[in-house]
Simulated assay, not measured.
Amino acid sequence: MAKREVDIVIISDVHLGTYGCHAKELLKYLKSIKPKMLILNGDIIDIWQFSKSYWPETHMKVVRRILKFVTEGIPVYYLTGNHDEMLRKFTDFDLGTFQLLNKIVLNIDGKKAWIFHGDVFDVTMQHSKWLAKLGAVGYDSLILINSFVNWFLTAIGKQKMSFSQKVKAKFKDAVKFINAFEQTAADLAVEKQYSYVICGHIHHAEIREIQSTEGNGSVLYLNSGDWVESLTALEYHNNNWTIFKYTPEAFHTDTDEEDQTDAEDLDAKMDVNKLLERFRQEAE
């Protein structure tokens, strides 16, 4: 099947290594595209909750697929987030077309794009990291329970529901936090004279023009969402930004032959298991 060509793809908040991660769906998406550049904008591997007892094969296949882009010469930027912050000690590490960074500024068709995860704006992250980590465990537990409920709802022909999105919608403080996050990012981007500011972290996909608080300009704010609930990515193609949202109907059932070929090709070019073990060591 022909792959869809995209100039730039940005994904974030995949949280590989947790029960809430939709690795199977992400794998289908990654197999369907042919990007000229891939940006992983933080929290791809969830080192906070990384467990050697939970690393399904589908999670490994996502890693292989990303590394396949690297071996094909496609630039892949891994920008660190809070859940994979331990990797920040390795920033500026590069492996061929793969680079590990904290943030990046790109020139996209003559416009500057400031891209970073966004946890720097989170007060909880800065002053109560233990509370943030505790919240992450609770969030993952909520997602796990939600998956069982959705399985039951699907079995009886009912529509799926999202516990966390309903919780967020009930609390005005959650909405205020998202709005404050977006405004802060926009204000700083306008000050730095960037055309785009692109974040992740808050699991809320968005593309919208935001005026600065000072009224001295505006910037296009973009957020890639997540692959826990939203199942979204940012795509840039033909001078246009869009939000991709995964739907099962858009994808055919995958076969294992391509996955096996990926594994064999990568094993011939790099020791994937050795690379992954470095992540595991950081989790201990």
Rank of each mutant, 00 (worst) to 15 (best):
N223C: 15
P248H: 02
E206F: 02
I178N: 02
I178A: 09
L231S: 13
L153D: 03
D173H: 03
G215F: 00
F163P: 00
F177V: 09
E182T: 13
S162K: 02
Q211C: 11
Y236C: 01
G217Y: 07
A186D: 11
N240W: 00
S230V: 14
W227A: 07
I210C: 01
F152A: 04
K158D: 06
I210A: 04
D187G: 11
Y246N: 14
V190C: 09
Q183L: 06
S218R: 13
Y196A: 01
E214N: 13
W151L: 01
V197T: 11
G217R: 13
F171R: 11
K170V: 02
S212V: 04
K245C: 05
S230P: 09
T184K: 14
I202W: 01
G200W: 10
E206G: 00
N223L: 12
Y246H: 14
N240F: 00
D173Q: 04
N238D: 15
I198G: 08
L222F: 04
G215W: 03
A180G: 14
F177I: 06
I178M: 05
T242V: 12
A189T: 06
F244S: 07
A186G: 15
S162L: 03
S162A: 10
F177Y: 13
E249L: 05
Q211F: 03
L153Q: 02
H204R: 08
I202E: 02
N238A: 08
I156H: 13
D226W: 02
K172D: 14
E191K: 09
V228L: 13
K168I: 01
K176V: 11
A185N: 07
I210P: 00
N239T: 03
P248V: 02
K192R: 12
A233P: 13
L188C: 12
I202H: 02
N238E: 14
S224I: 12
K158Y: 07
I210D: 01
D226S: 05
D226M: 00
L188Y: 11
V197Y: 08
V197W: 05
S224Q: 13
I243E: 06
T184N: 09
K166S: 01
L222P: 03
S212R: 08
L220R: 15
D173R: 06
K176G: 10
N238Y: 03
A233Q: 10
A186N: 12
V167T: 09
K192Y: 14
L234T: 09
H237L: 06
E182I: 09
Y194G: 03
A180Y: 07
A233G: 13
N239D: 10
F171N: 15
T213C: 04
T242S: 11
M161Q: 11
V190I: 12
K168H: 05
V219H: 01
S218L: 11
R208G: 04
E214V: 12
L153S: 03
T242R: 01
K168M: 08
N223H: 11
T184D: 10
D187C: 14
F181I: 05
L220G: 12
T242K: 05
G157R: 07
Y221V: 14
I210S: 04
S230C: 15
V167S: 05
Q165C: 05
